[in-house]
Amino acid sequence: MSYGDPNNPYGQQPPQGQPGYGQAPGQPGYGYPQQAPQGVPQQGYGYPQQPASPYGAYPQQPGGGYGYQGGGPTVASMGRRFGARVIDGVAFGIIYGILLAIGIAGLVGAASDCDPNSVTYDSCMNDAGSDVMATMGASLGAFAVVGLLYEWLMTALVGGTLGKLAVGIRVINADTGQKPGVGAAFVRYIIPILGSLACGIGALLVYLSPFWDKTGRQQGWHDKAAKTMVVQRSNN
Protein backbone atom coordinates (compact mmCIF):
# COMPACT_ATOMS: atom_id res chain seq x y z
CA MET A 1 0.00 0.00 0.00
CA SER A 2 1.10 3.55 -0.54
CA TYR A 3 1.95 6.11 2.11
CA GLY A 4 -1.04 8.00 3.46
CA ASP A 5 -3.60 5.16 3.07
CA PRO A 6 -6.14 5.85 5.89
CA ASN A 7 -6.79 2.10 6.26
CA ASN A 8 -3.14 1.30 6.82
CA PRO A 9 -1.74 2.79 10.11
CA TYR A 10 1.57 1.00 9.52
CA GLY A 11 2.16 2.25 6.06
CA GLN A 12 5.47 2.92 4.43
CA GLN A 13 7.79 5.59 5.73
CA PRO A 14 7.44 8.98 4.13
CA PRO A 15 9.90 9.75 1.41
CA GLN A 16 13.27 11.13 2.50
CA GLY A 17 13.14 14.82 3.23
CA GLN A 18 9.45 14.85 4.19
CA PRO A 19 8.22 15.13 7.81
CA GLY A 20 6.97 12.01 9.58
CA TYR A 21 3.64 11.35 11.22
CA GLY A 22 2.64 14.11 13.65
CA GLN A 23 5.76 16.05 12.83
CA ALA A 24 5.87 19.69 12.02
CA PRO A 25 7.89 20.73 9.00
CA GLY A 26 11.50 21.57 9.86
CA GLN A 27 11.55 19.45 13.04
CA PRO A 28 13.64 16.26 13.32
CA GLY A 29 11.69 13.01 13.14
CA TYR A 30 11.40 10.35 15.79
CA GLY A 31 13.10 7.00 15.75
CA TYR A 32 16.82 6.72 15.08
CA PRO A 33 18.99 9.60 16.32
CA GLN A 34 19.84 12.35 13.93
CA GLN A 35 23.41 12.44 12.72
CA ALA A 36 25.51 15.31 14.01
CA PRO A 37 26.67 17.81 11.39
CA GLN A 38 30.05 17.14 9.88
CA GLY A 39 32.88 18.29 12.15
CA VAL A 40 30.77 18.19 15.34
CA PRO A 41 31.55 15.23 17.66
CA GLN A 42 28.58 12.98 18.29
CA GLN A 43 27.64 12.35 21.91
CA GLY A 44 27.17 8.77 23.07
CA TYR A 45 24.21 7.44 24.94
CA GLY A 46 24.00 6.62 28.64
CA TYR A 47 25.46 8.52 31.54
CA PRO A 48 27.92 11.34 30.94
CA GLN A 49 31.53 10.32 30.73
CA GLN A 50 33.55 10.74 33.93
CA PRO A 51 37.06 12.21 33.93
CA ALA A 52 39.92 9.77 34.18
CA SER A 53 40.83 8.77 37.73
CA PRO A 54 44.44 9.00 38.94
CA TYR A 55 44.19 5.29 39.83
CA GLY A 56 42.41 4.06 36.70
CA ALA A 57 39.36 2.02 37.72
CA TYR A 58 38.86 3.88 40.97
CA PRO A 59 35.15 3.96 41.79
CA GLN A 60 33.50 7.03 43.21
CA GLN A 61 31.89 6.59 46.63
CA PRO A 62 28.69 8.27 47.83
CA GLY A 63 29.40 11.70 49.23
CA GLY A 64 32.38 12.43 47.00
CA GLY A 65 36.01 11.46 47.18
CA TYR A 66 37.82 8.46 45.86
CA GLY A 67 36.97 4.93 46.88
CA TYR A 68 39.25 2.21 48.07
CA GLN A 69 37.89 -0.95 46.51
CA GLY A 70 37.93 -2.52 43.09
CA GLY A 71 40.71 -1.06 40.96
CA GLY A 72 41.74 1.58 43.51
CA PRO A 73 44.47 1.37 46.13
CA THR A 74 44.07 -0.89 49.14
CA VAL A 75 43.65 0.68 52.56
CA ALA A 76 46.77 0.10 54.64
CA SER A 77 46.31 -2.31 57.52
CA MET A 78 46.89 -1.18 61.07
CA GLY A 79 49.67 -3.75 61.32
CA ARG A 80 51.62 -2.03 58.54
CA ARG A 81 51.00 1.36 60.07
CA PHE A 82 52.24 0.14 63.44
CA GLY A 83 55.30 -1.38 61.76
CA ALA A 84 56.08 1.96 60.13
CA ARG A 85 55.89 3.70 63.51
CA VAL A 86 58.20 1.12 65.04
CA ILE A 87 60.80 1.60 62.28
CA ASP A 88 60.70 5.39 62.59
CA GLY A 89 60.73 5.13 66.38
CA VAL A 90 63.79 2.87 66.38
CA ALA A 91 65.63 5.22 64.02
CA PHE A 92 64.85 8.24 66.19
CA GLY A 93 65.64 6.28 69.33
CA ILE A 94 69.11 5.51 68.00
CA ILE A 95 69.71 9.18 67.24
CA TYR A 96 68.40 10.20 70.66
CA GLY A 97 70.62 7.58 72.31
CA ILE A 98 73.68 8.92 70.50
CA LEU A 99 72.91 12.46 71.67
CA LEU A 100 72.39 11.23 75.23
CA ALA A 101 75.67 9.33 75.16
CA ILE A 102 77.47 12.42 73.92
CA GLY A 103 75.98 14.45 76.78
CA ILE A 104 77.00 11.90 79.41
CA ALA A 105 80.50 11.70 77.97
CA GLY A 106 80.73 15.49 78.09
CA LEU A 107 79.62 15.53 81.73
CA VAL A 108 82.15 12.88 82.68
CA GLY A 109 84.90 14.74 80.84
CA ALA A 110 84.03 18.03 82.48
CA ALA A 111 83.85 16.41 85.91
CA SER A 112 87.31 14.91 85.46
CA ASP A 113 88.73 18.41 85.12
CA CYS A 114 87.49 19.34 88.57
CA ASP A 115 89.87 18.72 91.49
CA PRO A 116 88.04 16.92 94.33
CA ASN A 117 90.48 18.40 96.83
CA SER A 118 89.90 21.96 95.71
CA VAL A 119 87.61 24.28 97.58
CA THR A 120 86.06 25.20 94.25
CA TYR A 121 85.19 21.59 93.44
CA ASP A 122 81.45 22.04 94.00
CA SER A 123 81.24 25.16 91.89
CA CYS A 124 83.39 23.50 89.22
CA MET A 125 80.99 20.53 89.03
CA ASN A 126 77.97 22.84 88.93
CA ASP A 127 79.47 24.82 86.08
CA ALA A 128 80.35 21.65 84.21
CA GLY A 129 76.84 20.28 84.65
CA SER A 130 75.28 23.56 83.51
CA ASP A 131 77.42 23.60 80.37
CA VAL A 132 76.55 20.00 79.53
CA MET A 133 72.83 20.57 80.14
CA ALA A 134 72.86 23.65 77.91
CA THR A 135 74.54 21.66 75.16
CA MET A 136 72.11 18.80 75.60
CA GLY A 137 69.15 21.16 75.51
CA ALA A 138 70.31 22.72 72.26
CA SER A 139 70.91 19.28 70.76
CA LEU A 140 67.47 18.00 71.76
CA GLY A 141 65.84 21.17 70.43
CA ALA A 142 67.55 20.65 67.10
CA PHE A 143 66.52 16.99 67.24
CA ALA A 144 62.86 17.99 67.72
CA VAL A 145 63.00 20.39 64.77
CA VAL A 146 64.57 17.72 62.58
CA GLY A 147 61.84 15.30 63.65
CA LEU A 148 59.15 17.83 62.71
CA LEU A 149 60.66 18.54 59.32
CA TYR A 150 61.29 14.85 58.70
CA GLU A 151 57.74 13.59 59.18
CA TRP A 152 56.00 16.74 57.96
CA LEU A 153 57.93 17.28 54.72
CA MET A 154 58.44 13.61 53.92
CA THR A 155 54.69 13.05 54.16
CA ALA A 156 53.91 16.19 52.15
CA LEU A 157 56.40 15.70 49.33
CA VAL A 158 56.96 11.92 49.18
CA GLY A 159 53.81 10.55 50.76
CA GLY A 160 55.40 8.97 53.82
CA THR A 161 58.35 8.62 56.15
CA LEU A 162 61.11 6.07 55.66
CA GLY A 163 59.18 3.72 57.94
CA LYS A 164 56.06 3.96 55.80
CA LEU A 165 58.03 3.51 52.60
CA ALA A 166 59.79 0.49 54.08
CA VAL A 167 56.51 -1.33 54.80
CA GLY A 168 54.90 -0.29 51.51
CA ILE A 169 52.32 2.28 52.58
CA ARG A 170 51.82 5.97 51.91
CA VAL A 171 49.57 8.89 52.80
CA ILE A 172 47.32 10.37 50.11
CA ASN A 173 44.72 13.08 49.82
CA ALA A 174 41.43 11.23 50.29
CA ASP A 175 39.66 13.37 47.68
CA THR A 176 42.22 13.37 44.85
CA GLY A 177 44.46 10.36 45.47
CA GLN A 178 47.52 12.61 45.19
CA LYS A 179 50.19 13.52 47.77
CA PRO A 180 48.67 15.40 50.72
CA GLY A 181 50.60 18.64 50.29
CA VAL A 182 52.36 20.80 52.86
CA GLY A 183 49.27 22.13 54.65
CA ALA A 184 47.47 18.82 55.09
CA ALA A 185 50.66 17.03 56.12
CA PHE A 186 51.29 19.64 58.82
CA VAL A 187 47.75 19.26 60.21
CA ARG A 188 48.16 15.50 60.21
CA TYR A 189 51.45 15.75 62.10
CA ILE A 190 50.55 18.41 64.66
CA ILE A 191 47.33 16.83 66.01
CA PRO A 192 49.11 13.86 67.71
CA ILE A 193 51.75 16.28 69.01
CA LEU A 194 49.07 18.41 70.66
CA GLY A 195 47.50 15.25 72.03
CA SER A 196 50.81 14.26 73.62
CA LEU A 197 50.61 17.33 75.86
CA ALA A 198 47.99 15.44 77.91
CA CYS A 199 50.61 13.05 79.33
CA GLY A 200 50.79 11.29 75.98
CA ILE A 201 47.26 9.89 76.31
CA GLY A 202 45.88 12.17 73.60
CA ALA A 203 48.50 11.08 71.08
CA LEU A 204 47.81 7.41 71.88
CA LEU A 205 44.08 7.94 71.30
CA VAL A 206 44.78 9.67 67.99
CA TYR A 207 46.92 6.77 66.76
CA LEU A 208 44.28 4.26 67.89
CA SER A 209 41.35 6.20 66.41
CA PRO A 210 41.48 4.41 62.99
CA PHE A 211 40.04 1.36 64.77
CA TRP A 212 36.84 3.34 65.41
CA ASP A 213 36.40 4.62 61.86
CA LYS A 214 33.13 3.26 60.42
CA THR A 215 33.79 4.31 56.79
CA GLY A 216 36.14 1.42 56.01
CA ARG A 217 39.02 3.80 55.26
CA GLN A 218 40.59 3.45 58.71
CA GLN A 219 41.08 7.20 58.97
CA GLY A 220 42.31 8.45 62.33
CA TRP A 221 41.22 11.76 63.79
CA HIS A 222 44.36 13.35 62.34
CA ASP A 223 43.50 11.87 58.91
CA LYS A 224 39.95 13.20 59.03
CA ALA A 225 41.16 16.67 60.01
CA ALA A 226 43.73 16.68 57.21
CA LYS A 227 41.43 14.86 54.71
CA THR A 228 44.02 12.14 54.17
CA MET A 229 44.06 8.35 54.24
CA VAL A 230 46.81 5.72 54.36
CA VAL A 231 46.95 3.17 51.55
CA GLN A 232 49.28 0.48 50.32
CA ARG A 233 51.74 1.64 47.71
CA SER A 234 51.15 0.64 44.11
CA ASN A 235 53.70 -1.56 42.40
CA ASN A 236 53.53 0.65 39.32
Rank of each mutant, 00 (worst) to 15 (best):
S196R: 06
G44V: 09
L205G: 03
M125R: 15
K179C: 02
D88Y: 07
G79W: 15
R81F: 01
A128K: 08
F211P: 00
G44T: 13
C124Y: 05
Y189A: 10
P37A: 09
P37W: 11
P62K: 08
R81P: 06
Y10P: 00
V86M: 15
G147Q: 05
Q38W: 03
P48E: 05
Y47C: 02
T161F: 04
R170N: 04
G20L: 00
I190Q: 10
Q23M: 12
A128H: 04
A76C: 05
A101M: 14
L162P: 04
S53T: 09
G22H: 11
I102Y: 02
D122Y: 11
D127G: 15
S196V: 01
F143Q: 07
N126W: 06
K227P: 07
A174W: 02
Q18G: 00
M154W: 10
I193D: 09
S123G: 03
G31P: 00
M1H: 11
Y189R: 12
G11S: 08
K224C: 01
G4D: 05
P54D: 06
M136Q: 12
G31H: 00
V171L: 11
G22Y: 08
P28H: 07
M154L: 15
G11E: 06
Y30S: 12
P33W: 03
N173A: 04
P33G: 06
A57V: 10
T228L: 15
Q16D: 08
V40P: 02
P48F: 09
Y32T: 13
G65R: 09
V158H: 10
Q232Y: 04
G109H: 07
C114K: 14
G129D: 05
Q18K: 11
I172S: 04
L148K: 02
Q60W: 03
I94S: 13
Q42I: 02
L140G: 00
G72C: 00
S53G: 11
D5I: 07
P210N: 07
G11N: 03
A184M: 02
V75H: 07
V187F: 11
E151M: 03
G109W: 00
N235F: 00
G181R: 08
S123T: 12
G64Y: 08
L197H: 00
A24D: 14
S112I: 09
D5T: 07
R188Y: 05
G200L: 08
A57L: 10
Q27S: 02
A76F: 04
F211W: 09
P6H: 12
Q42M: 10
R188A: 10
L140Q: 09
G44S: 13
A142H: 01
P37D: 09
I98D: 08
P15V: 10
Y96V: 07
